[in-house]
Amino acid sequence: MSQPSPSPSSTPFKFPTYHASYPPFFTLQPNTSTLTAQYRKWSRLIQRYCRHHRLYKLSLTSTIDSPLFKNTELKKRLSLQDARSVLEWMSRDEGGRRIEWVDQKGRVVDGRPREDTHDTCWVFWKRPEEWGDVIAAWVEETGQKGVVLTFYELVNGEGTRGEEFHGMDQELFRRALSTLVKRGKAQVFGGEGAEGTKFF
């Protein structure tokens, strides 16, 4: 179903027409039902953008001037505050929990979004459990159930080259595996740096 995604920025990201040529897209709409539709569009766009560029985390202050939030041709931009609202919507249930705020140390932060604490977030174009499914499916397909595989092998090994999870963020990979452990589909052992896993 999913072909290997292109490596970072090998092809330019193609923005949808409403981002390329529709100025109101960059102003959060005053009408609630329109706004919800707009949030949904932004959410999908951000996920697709991050997926294209293989971004797992996004920092608002460093992305706000990127083409994602700023259209130089139209001379329109999503303001920092509005971008934060979009992400905040994405972090909620109605947004499918597609992002998760973290602080500088990578710890998850909750509560109302504030300028000083809510800058960086995970962008889950695949949620950890979805990643888990992808990895489990690969193990199943390649007949490696019950085989001990190291983390390094799975993420960076030759065998997974071309797979979507090849070269993915270590921490996210760990989280993906832990969702599998929780569901009783895998077991993780070994210490930091030399962890291995076994799938059932």
Binding site: P24, F26, T27, N31, T34
Partner: peptide, 11 residues
């Protein structure tokens, strides 16, 4: 605007 029939650009 109230009926979602137009979108506004405030920039």
């Amino acid at each position: 605007l109230g009926d979602s029939l137009v979108w506004v650009d405030l920039q």
